[in-house]
């Protein structure tokens, strides 16, 4: 049996699998946060490899903003079934209905910030002690110092000055009752690594990642998909463009890029030459210079 992958991707795969197994061993109620995006798809794929021939010993948790591209949900349900995983869904709409949060208003309204409350409520309800996410250190400056095992206090908050030193491959998952960990097995991957891995492993991903025609509006330098979820400003005229998404999140703030890339290979070629970071297409990061850091302190993933 020859391995399909070698070199640095094999090293990254081995590392991620090690982290998954460590989580299963050290925690009682871990969940894998599943957004439907390629990183969480790769995470699920790795989890399935880590525990084969056993089943993945942790459920997937989707925090649903309700502002989804329809393709995302269809894909999610099919993929989860194929992987033999258990899926839990908690929705922002519920949090709004129960009065836990208030919907933002105005043209830039987004449920991106609201989902933090839904997420923390869900973690509490499910008594989750470890939530695995697909975040990578290369995505944003504030993430460069993130640990594989990132400790959160009882309020789900991250204290950048109070993170534990992480040495060799000894991950310390000890905590007090009520606290939990965010865990990032893909910490050392870059966007290009993720794409190369998807290609070599032939992992299915939603079509939104490939070039397609879509009505978009340009706002603050970001191309947003025109949908029922966004409110057009007076001077905004939707236009038809060939675009693809580099991340898939809430439809109100996930930016598209103009692209002709219609296959994984084409996306890799484009990513290798890409001049804008992946998150550069997300309008929520641009709100302030230290935007990401602030949201992380509050418990954003």
């Amino acid at each position: 049996m020859t391995r399909r992958i070698k070199g640095h991707l094999q090293a990254l795969e081995n590392e991620a699998v090690y982290v998954f197994r460590e989580v299963a061993a050290q925690f009682e109620r871990p969940v894998l946060l599943f957004s439907g995006g390629k990183d969480s798809i790769v995470m699920t794929w790795l989890a399935q490899k880590a525990f084969r021939p056993g089943a993945v010993p942790l459920p997937l948790l989707h925090i649903d903003t309700g502002h989804n591209f329809p393709e995302t949900i269809e894909f999610r349900d099919r993929f989860v079934e194929d992987m033999g995983c258990r899926l839990l869904v908690r929705s922002v709409q519920d949090s709004i209905d129960r009065g836990r949060v208030q919907e933002e208003t105005g043209p830039d309204a987004s449920r991106n910030a609201l989902q933090t409350v839904t997420l923390l409520d869900a973690l509490k309800e499910l008594k989750v002690d470890a939530a695995l996410g697909g975040a990578r250190r290369d995505e944003e400056k504030a993430r460069a110092k993130e640990r594989f095992f990132s400790h959160r206090d009882r309020f789900g908050q991250w204290d950048p000055k109070n993170q534990r030193p992480e040495l060799w491959r000894l991950y310390n998952g000890r905590k007090a009752p009520g606290e939990h960990f965010r865990i990032f097995p893909l910490s050392n991957w870059t966007e290009l690594d993720v794409w190369q891995y998807i290609r070599l492993e032939e992992i299915p991903i939603p079509h939104l990642y490939f070039s397609h025609e879509r009505e978009v509006v340009r706002r603050n330098g970001v191309l947003l998909a025109n949908s029922d979820f966004i409110e057009l400003m007076d001077d905004e005229r939707p236009e038809l463009r060939r675009v693809r998404f580099r991340t898939i999140g809430d439809a109100t703030c996930t930016g598209a890029v103009e692209s002709e890339a219609n296959s994984v290979e084409a996306v890799i070629l484009e990513t290798g030459a890409a001049r804008v970071t992946e998150r550069g297409g997300r309008s929520d990061d641009k709100r302030s210079e230290a935007a990401m850091e602030e949201r992380k302190r509050e418990g954003y993933f």
């Binding site: 640095h8 990254l12 070599l200």
Partner: peptide, 13 residues
């Protein structure tokens, strides 16, 4: 290889 010339089987330092 990709356009940046990065082969897939590179090693890691």
């Amino acid at each position: 290889t990709t356009t940046t010339g990065a082969p897939v089987e590179t090693d890691l330092l």
